[in-house]
Design a protein around this nucleic acid. Structure first.
Length: 658
DNA sequence: CTGAATGACCTTTTT
DNA sequence: GGTCATTCAG
């Protein structure tokens, strides 16, 4: 525990009974979690395999695993379960699938699959209605309500409608032998709350629970924690109410208060010393967040030096802003001899990265975009995964529909509509239906031949999968399905083809590591991976959304697009979530270790139309003494521009000298 | 049934 | 500004 302050040490030592650690930004909370697990393992109070550390992203889980491995020598800590809530839920559902009415090889529907179901369920409904229904259902699931309970508790007509769609949608999932993301929490919770035997078995497997980013838990996740940690509350929750930025997807930051109510013996420890940010950055963050009401007031402080003032830039438009930022990054990198990976550009919405990317390319600055065209969203990857899904779960119509058209085999809308109807009449899934001669006979010869062949290929692939390692199965699917051939014909040149073929190869490599796991298990784990979980970026400037930045830190941070309507975002304002927007900016600001820039574009374009934007209201909440507005202080600007040109000169000299 | 061309419409954030 | 869905010709 060397170098730890006393609240940190206390948090590590407290292992008997419930503990809540309110950890401010940069207060070393991950370190506390790691140290705590390490000591628990070494002291042997709990065997490693009975300890579970729950995170909210796979990336956080991976990082924790790596840090723990470094801290504990040998393989003593290897058995510790470190995963996301959803991965834990998946594990429970996989083991107890029969009790939950699911067959082996069940599918996990991603939001696209879910959307497709709702579209099918509500023909003619507009986007608003679709999203509305989806959100209502998700909300009910986050409250761990079954369709019946949702109907019983529904008060408004809106809620009653939601319950109606929920029941229909759930029927579909059942028929498809599928679950959605919300079910991965709801179903295990249901099991643990109603089945004493299952609960006992899982308490035996998990004796102590640590939860990171506790403020992001929703009601179902909280109850899952309670079910696992038992009446005595064998858990440590670590969180920060000021960093709650996921209320829009069901997180309930009030769970922090609920904890004290449900566990009177709860011990609360605050970590208020910040080890990350310069004092100026910290003062700005404190001042901003002071505008939010608090039930657990914290005062973050730091021993760091003041550092540079926060630079505020007004820009003409997005392109101008991006160019300024890119130029400044280049300048700062040479001035400090800093690697690109010390820099990070943060924005509210992913689309804001576009202008930034252009500017970075112009100056040839290497960058990494988190959440760009994510690997798992690439066409060929989704295609192959849908083949895997329909192979292991023939009930999965959603996967069938995609696989049967990848590659195209002369089966189109009309045929599929007809097939779907025939299948429904016979109470068969589509993949099962095409194995039936009587069904095929009712379709045109061409279509039935194509479907019969598809069916045959599926059979062969299933056979192949029983005898070969998963990664090889993936390659074989690409080949045997005709996907590779299609990709080849689509690509104009060899380079493009290699590029897309490499995606297939990369997907195959994801399936390599699995220790004796089949493609089914691997595919469902893969379904839980998100756009931000990709491997490390190396020495590149990081471009990412503010949400994706939580938990990270950088020497130099640029926050762009600080316009009213963007941050705070219009939609959030309409839904009365100003405080969450403020917290989002708070998170963004506290990513900066050394220096911070904030910029806004006064004239922007939206969908081709020109619009004028006002600077974000949050500027008024930042202490003027910590800010430096370019253009308002001509002297300082002059000095800076001189410094910049000198720097450029020095660069040229250095280049000539070589 | 497929591919090109035209028109509609923008989830902000993600497990 | 750009994607996605719909429409129309082949």
């Amino acid at each position: 525990m060397q170098g730890m302050n006393s609240p940190q040490q206390e948090a590590v030592r407290h292992t008997e009974g419930p503990l809540l650690v309110l950890a401010g930004a940069g207060s070393g909370k991950t370190r506390v979690i790691i140290e705590k697990i390490a000591q628990m393992v070494q002291k042997g109070r709990y065997p490693a395999h009975r300890i579970a550390a729950i995170t909210f992203t796979n990336k956080a889980a991976r990082e924790m695993r790596e840090r723990l491995a470094k801290r504990v020598r040998g393989d003593a800590a290897e058995g510790v379960r470190i995963c996301t809530f959803h991965a834990l839920g998946l594990n429970i559902v996989q083991i107890d699938h029969a009790k939950l009415g699911l067959k082996r090889g069940f599918s996990i529907f991603d939001p696209d699959d879910v959307m497709a179901q709702f579209k099918d369920l509500m023909p003619g409904a507009d986007k608003d209605a679709l999203y509305g229904a989806m959100n209502l259902v998700s909300k009910a699931k986050n409250l761990a309500l079954s369709p019946e309970k949702a109907a019983a508790y529904a008060k408004s007509t809106r809620e009653k409608e939601g319950a109606h769609w929920y029941a229909l949608y759930q029927e579909r999932l059942q028929a498809f032998n599928a679950v959605d993301f919300d079910d991965l929490i709801r179903l295990p919770l249901n099991l643990l709350e109603t089945d004493d035997e299952a609960r006992a078995a899982w308490r035996e497997r998990i004796g102590y629970v640590l939860v990171d980013e506790y403020q992001d838990t929703n009601d179902a996740q909280y109850r899952l924690l309670k079910a696992l940690a038992g009446e005595q509350g064998q858990f440590t929750c670590v969180g920060d109410d000021d960093q709650s930025i996921y209320a829009w997807r069901g997180a309930n930051p009030e769970n922090i208060d609920t904890l004290a109510r449900d566990y009177p013996s709860l011990r609360v420890i605050k970590l208020e010393q910040n080890y990350r940010c310069s004092n100026r950055v910290l003062r700005a963050a404190n001042a901003l967040i002071a505008n939010n009401p608090h039930t657990h007031p914290k005062q973050l402080w730091s021993e760091a030096k003041d550092g540079e003032r926060i630079r505020v830039w007004e820009c003409n438009d997005e392109a101008h802003e991006a160019e300024k930022v890119a130029a400044e990054i280049q300048f700062m990198a040479t001035k400090h001899g800093a690697p690109w990976s010390d820099f990070c550009v943060l924005f509210r919405g992913n689309h804001q990265s576009r202008a930034m990317e252009k500017a970075m390319q112009m100056l040839r600055i290497p960058y990494h975009l988190s959440g760009g065209t994510a690997f798992l969203e690439r066409q060929e990857v989704k295609d192959i995964l849908s083949w895997v899904r329909v192979m292991v779960n023939p009930d999965d119509d959603s996967a069938f529909l995609r696989a049967v058209q990848a590659p195209g085999r002369g089966v189109g809308q009309t045929t599929l509509a007809k097939l779907s109807e025939l299948a429904r009449n016979k109470h068969l899934s589509m993949a099962h239906a095409i194995a039936s001669i009587s069904v095929l006979q009712q379709l045109p010869t061409r279509a039935s031949n194509a479907l019969d062949q598809f069916n045959e290929t599926l059979h062969q692939l299933r056979q192949y999968a029983t005898q070969h390692p998963p990664d090889q199965v993936i390659r074989h699917i690409a080949e045997r399905s005709g996907l590779l051939a299609q990709i080849r014909s689509e690509c104009k040149n060899e380079q493009l083809f290699t590029l897309r073929k490499n995606n297939v190869e990369e997907l195959a490599s994801w399936f390599e590591g699995g220790k004796g796991q089949g493609i089914a298990d691997l595919a469902s784990q893969l379904a839980l991976f998100s756009r931000n979980d990709k491997d490390d970026a190396g020495n590149q400037v990081r471009l990412m959304s503010m949400h994706a930045a939580k938990g990270l830190e950088f020497r130099f941070v640029f926050i762009i697009g600080m316009q009213e309507g963007v941050l705070p975002h219009e939609a959030s304002l309409e839904e009365g979530r100003l405080e969450e927007e403020r917290r989002l900016l708070y998170v963004a600001i506290t990513r900066a270790k050394e220096q911070l820039w904030m910029s806004y574009a006064s004239g922007g374009k939206k969908w081709g139309e020109r619009v004028t934007r006002l600077p974000s209201r949050f500027f008024e909440e930042l202490p003027a003494a910590e800010l430096h507005r370019d253009g308002l202080d001509p002297e300082a600007d002059k000095a800076r521009s001189q410094e910049r040109s000198e720097n450029a000169l020095a660069n040229i000299r250095a280049m000539l000298g070589r």
